[in-house]
Design a protein around this nucleic acid. Sequence first.
DNA 1: TTTAGCACTCGTCATCCCTGAGTGCTAACT
DNA 2: AGTTAGCACTCAGGGATGACGAGTGCTAAA
Lengths: 353, 353
Amino acid sequence: MELTERKKKILRAIVDCYIQTAEPVGSKAIAAMPGMDVSSATIRNEMADLTEMGYLEQPHTSAGRIPSPAGYRLYVNELMEGYRLSIDETQSLNEAMELKLQEFDKVMTQVGKMVSNWTNLPAYAVTSRVGQLPTVKHFEILSAHTGSFILVVMTNTETVKNKLIKLPLNIQEQDLKLLSAVLNASLTDLSAEQITPEILSKIRKSAGAAADLVPIIVDYTVRILQEQQHSDVYLTGQMKLLGQPEYRDVEKAQEVLSTLDEEVIANLPAPTDGPVQILVGPENIAKELKDTSVVMTRFDIGDGMQGMIGVVGPTRMDYAQVTARLSYFAEGLGRMFGKNELPPAKESDGGTE
Amino acid sequence: MELTERKKKILRAIVDCYIQTAEPVGSKAIAAMPGMDVSSATIRNEMADLTEMGYLEQPHTSAGRIPSPAGYRLYVNELMEGYRLSIDETQSLNEAMELKLQEFDKVMTQVGKMVSNWTNLPAYAVTSRVGQLPTVKHFEILSAHTGSFILVVMTNTETVKNKLIKLPLNIQEQDLKLLSAVLNASLTDLSAEQITPEILSKIRKSAGAAADLVPIIVDYTVRILQEQQHSDVYLTGQMKLLGQPEYRDVEKAQEVLSTLDEEVIANLPAPTDGPVQILVGPENIAKELKDTSVVMTRFDIGDGMQGMIGVVGPTRMDYAQVTARLSYFAEGLGRMFGKNELPPAKESDGGTE
DNA sequence: TTTAGCACTCGTCATCCCTGAGTGCTAACT
DNA sequence: AGTTAGCACTCAGGGATGACGAGTGCTAAA
């Protein structure tokens, strides 16, 4: 059977309608829509065909039709009409970005929250490292006040971390200088795995009076490098799912939400190409998510980091709107992180002890 | 009417039972409990008294009784039997603490998650500053590689933050030294509010070649100070509420969860005295939370910081268990943060640009 | 090829009734 | 005086029943 233009038009109308109402849509409703100039009987025939072709499903005999996964797929691939953001929308988002992202740190949490609020669905934000393993580029040791000093570690990923270390023992300025030099000489360009106990003891030997500091510093350094490697996942707005009619049943919501932990998110396939990727229902990894769809996109943070934002919602979600909002958001983030001067980007946090 | 010992015993039995089953408990069930050596009729009489006294309520005529808020209050105040943590419990918690808190930063998020998992309820963790306003104690400027330098700011709260700043303009080592000296001279011991535009322009005048850097640095400094002031709230495990029978209805769950944002949490009264404070139902601030209780406790982070953890759940929650777990947790955290040497405490994060 | 008409299906909703848990009261018992 | 057995009464919950209506598929006419 052939997928005529009219069939496509009807399918689109059905999906559009179902997305709005979340209820099976009947032939009459479609026939009544503006632009449809055939009778309900004709629609019925076409709907029967579409059902046979696998694009529609019938929950039960005397109900209307709902789109099948294949139907959604077809819809997002070629039928969906682009959603145009209104001026208001873009404006309010711009403001929100300016305002919120000023708060240091926790940026990705904020990003997640904003996406979630804007799409009214659970959202996630992921940062991950692309490219080479993180290594140490430079150490710096500053003496603060008596008995304490600040360790500053810079990695090849342009990240700087620091830690305030307090020690009872008294170490002289020149000892710290020596230590700093030894560390720089020994650990530069090594990744976490390459820092072996042997290296540690070698450093310790040459560190002079500050030898006791070495294990502390090295431990800290290894942690930093390890932390750089693994990607961070921020998941927020899970309760937003409860607003969706398909999750009026707590059981259902729980099933999805309990599988939707950070582990699962981290394993979601990254968008391969194109600005936005959509996973429809059963295309998802976990079978518990077979009735949910994921829309995601990536953006560039710079410095070998890459971000990903996405939302999770019922298969019946407003793909056009979500897609538009998500990509606008990602674009804004890219711009924001890309800025080279005083960006409210990833920020430092204090080390306290 | 007098609250005899027997009445108390019965009330306790009723609350205990209701906490377990979440269903109105009848006279028969109480009479059948071990230790009860009177008949159901007697229990009925006593229950009628307790109802009259305001400790019990009757959902409808032919149902059993449920505790009223006053009943809960009495229960937590004097009736509740201490819950003893099993060896297994303490052990698994200890392990979890060791394991999880190694990950820097996000510590409070982790804490929140752990509390939530352990109590199986939504949990929050708050950090707040006690005592004086944060001020800058010391600046340090390190030149990294060409065109970029690292700004390190130390505050009176023993917090160290840094930021990597890249600039197209070329600034000499001695200019940075000068700038650093000027900054230290001008901004030390000022709080965010005290840093006025006048001071800024004064610094700018004396900063020589690095004058253009001044606004950037000052802005960053102010942000840090401001960030130190406000307390951070981490709320997790909201969906845990769905597991509770009283929230099988999505509407109810949504009502609570939507009011339960970080704003509200931040405004919860801090525990005044004693290790654990319990807010029963209507004692809560927001009227939407009238059917939920909050159990919270505080712990010391050190360095003028104070932490608070709490859980939110139905009025019918296992206060004894939650209280025990929460205080054990807080104790552990206090120990952990109190350690003075290489603690997995608040850590630094990288500044990237 | 389209459309009107019509019989048929089946989920939803309101109604009704039954059942059983639980109560309050009274009268007998200790 | 306090306790207990007995009993009538109340009322929420759960199934059964039937009317209703939205929606379908088919047929025959346009």
